[in-house]
Design a protein around this nucleic acid. Structure first.
Lengths: 215, 215
DNA sequence: CCAGAGTAGAGAGTTAGACTATCCAGCACA
DNA sequence: TGTGCTGGATAGTCTAACTCTCTACTCTGG
């Protein structure tokens, strides 16, 4: 398969494919001549993966590169995988080493988190800081509610990590971390609508635009 | 208070403040002379809100503008607020009107969601598409697990929406939608670590880097 | 065997977003 | 009175993610 065919197959322009090649996201084709290479189904699925990471996954080209790099050379023990996944995906501008609120919460909840993982803790700290800066104070107990909801989700997810091979486990964890995030957020927004419809709009027709609501 | 003081107070450069003024994110100061204006505490807190939306909230300047615009003129019934919030924040490139998977799931679960809200449904569809493109298939029952977790969270959040004034409700909903998202994601990643530590690393010291682990 | 299309590789150009810098008068306080 | 800040506007910078162009080929149909 040549580039132009690959481009048609994946609906990605030749120029962009070349760009991904240079960026190291996509491995080169098999050389058939000094100025000729051959691409296969592996390149097609790789390109689909790349687009999933860049689009729905919300990663930058650089971040996607790190994720793919990890996927390409599976090493490390099963336990460290999560750390790699979280670290590789979407690096914070500057993971500050100071995150008092986050530390306090983790200790309060008794969560076992690498004390040196400033990236993960910074993320939480920044989220909390954002809420505070916006003058938005979550109601009593909400932080705990969020935490326990995510803990339950995470526990189920970790249980399910395939134990068979490190490579498979790594793939599962990286993609599960990055690609499930937009899924969760989309579900939350839809659930808001659902909950709102149930609570507020008892008497009125919930969706004036549509003649009949799905029931 | 003059611009330079406002800049020092908020730690945002004068040039950037001017930029936000031009972009309509920040309202002008009270004119004291043709070439003089006066800023107050309102501008300070507004700037903090802007930065929270742009930074932790992950919004673009344009998206933040829409959110702030909504916050500035509270109208609408309580029930529509969620829709506005979801719609204003981070517009999809092109909310497709076709989202079969999303529709099917919502119907299967009996969720009451505006059939015309292509934005919200598209978001879910894209997330599902991303998983598929990446060749990542969530284990049996996981979609339901995610959905019920988010539904529980959303139900609690909607319950708590202040009924007092539309303005307050709107503020709560918009900020809760946008700013809680990074919080949830950060918690999920930390919870992954915690769950992983509990399951995998029974015997070994969980965090080789640190001499003593918390707990 | 040769013209025209396709290709790899690399550098330059483009576009969009978010700033950042410069300029220009006009107040304004020391 | 003049140094310095101000509002307003325009232009410039910087980065990310492409997209275009060019060169020196190779490959294919007639």
């Amino acid at each position: 398969m040549r580039v132009s065919e690959l481009a048609v197959e994946t609906d990605i322009s030749v120029a962009t494919i070349k760009y991904y090649l240079r960026a190291g996201l996509l491995h080169e084709g098999r050389r058939t001549a000094p100025r000729q290479a051959d691409y296969d189904a592996g390149h097609v699925s790789r390109l689909r993966l790349i687009r999933a990471l860049l689009g729905p996954g919300g990663l930058s080209v650089a971040a996607a590169g790190k994720v793919l790099e990890q996927l390409d050379e599976p090493t490390e023990s099963a336990h460290d995988l999560l750390g790699i996944a979280a670290h590789a995906a979407a690096a914070l501008p500057k993971p500050s080493t100071s995150h008092p609120r986050a530390d306090a919460l983790l200790e309060k909840w008794g969560w076992s988190v690498d004390p040196e993982d400033h990236d993960a803790r910074s993320r939480l700290e920044q989220a909390l800081q954002g809420l505070e800066d916006a003058g938005f104070e979550p109601p009593e107990g909400f932080l705990e509610m969020y935490a326990s909801a995510m803990r339950e989700v995470a526990a189920r997810e970790v249980e399910e990590v395939p134990q068979s091979s490190p490579a498979e486990a790594l793939r599962y964890v990286m993609l599960g971390t990055v690609l499930v995030e937009p899924l969760l957020l989309a579900l939350r927004r839809l659930a808001h609508q659902d909950a709102s419809a149930r609570i507020f709009a008892r008497q009125a027709s919930p969706w004036p635009n549509a003649e009949r609501t799905p029931e």
